[in-house]
Amino acid sequence: MHTVWKGAVSFGLVNVPVRMFSATEDKSIPLRYIHEQCGTPLSYVRRCKHCEEDVEWEEITKGYEYQKGHFVKIQKEELEQLAEQASKEIKILAFVDLHEIDPIYFQKTYYLSPQETSANAYNLLLESLRTTGKIGIANVSIRSKSSLAAIRVIDGCLAMETIFYPDEIRAVNQVPHLPEKRDVKENELQMAQMLIQQLSTSFDPSQYEDEYRIKMQDLIQKKIAGEEITTVPEQPKTNVIDLMSALQASLEAVQQPEPKQNQKDTPTPTKKESV
């Protein structure tokens, strides 16, 4: 893993020097824009509409649009000065229970490992969090961006989850067209609750996969191999006219036992190739 940040976790007067590693990776398949006529990849051009000319990186600065069409320029040196002032410390401010934080606050997860001389302090914090069942709420600055963070234990490793500040969460009352009343028919509610119970299980992430990415990889491999691409016909949908019919059909589909095959007629299973 590549180290993305070096600093220290502190709580009270205890200081734990750590290295930070990204705990997740984006596995989306990158697609580039191609000129349809000749097949050449297109380049990103930085062009000034006013001067009608391409602009080199050394001629570019940053700015904030405080009013439509009006900007204040922020120089590179000013940004670097702000970055230097940012503390290289994950300062734990308080300890809370994980269930108190709504998932809407979570951004990105990082793993933390001890630096060369901090194994004892690292283990102390890890075991303290594990045995108390608490997580630490901290302030942190990464790449010039400040955020709140949650320090917790994942499989014997300290982890940090950056979380949004409260004013970064949009209020629910901004969502348009929410129903003012929550009138629900009792029989429909009971059916929906039964369906939820039937579909309830323990969370096992290994049971889920990115179907779109698998199909995209298959499409790319077929095109590389020069195969003809065919479109799979869409499966017919059940024509459901109301909620009760939908709930009843869903329950019947969940409760329907799998058909038993005659042992003589059971086909030899084929190994499914992974993409």
Rank of each mutant, 00 (worst) to 15 (best):
G156V: 07
L178D: 04
E161Q: 04
D167R: 10
R170I: 10
R143H: 11
S128T: 14
D155R: 14
G133P: 01
P179V: 04
A149L: 03
C157P: 01
L129Y: 06
I137E: 00
G156P: 04
R130I: 03
P176T: 04
D183C: 03
E186N: 10
V153A: 06
M160G: 03
S146Y: 12
V172A: 14
I154K: 13
E186L: 12
E161R: 00
S144Y: 08
E186H: 11
E161D: 13
I137N: 01
G156K: 06
I142Y: 08
I163W: 00
R152S: 15
K134D: 08
E186T: 13
P166I: 09
D155Y: 09
E186P: 03
E127M: 12
R182P: 00
A159W: 03
H177S: 13
N173L: 10
L178T: 07
P179C: 07
L129R: 05
S141K: 05
G136D: 08
I137A: 03
R170L: 11
S128I: 09
V153K: 03
V184A: 09
L129G: 04
S147P: 00
M160Y: 05
S144N: 14
V153I: 08
H177L: 14
K134M: 13
I137C: 01
S128P: 01
E168M: 04
E168L: 06
L148H: 08
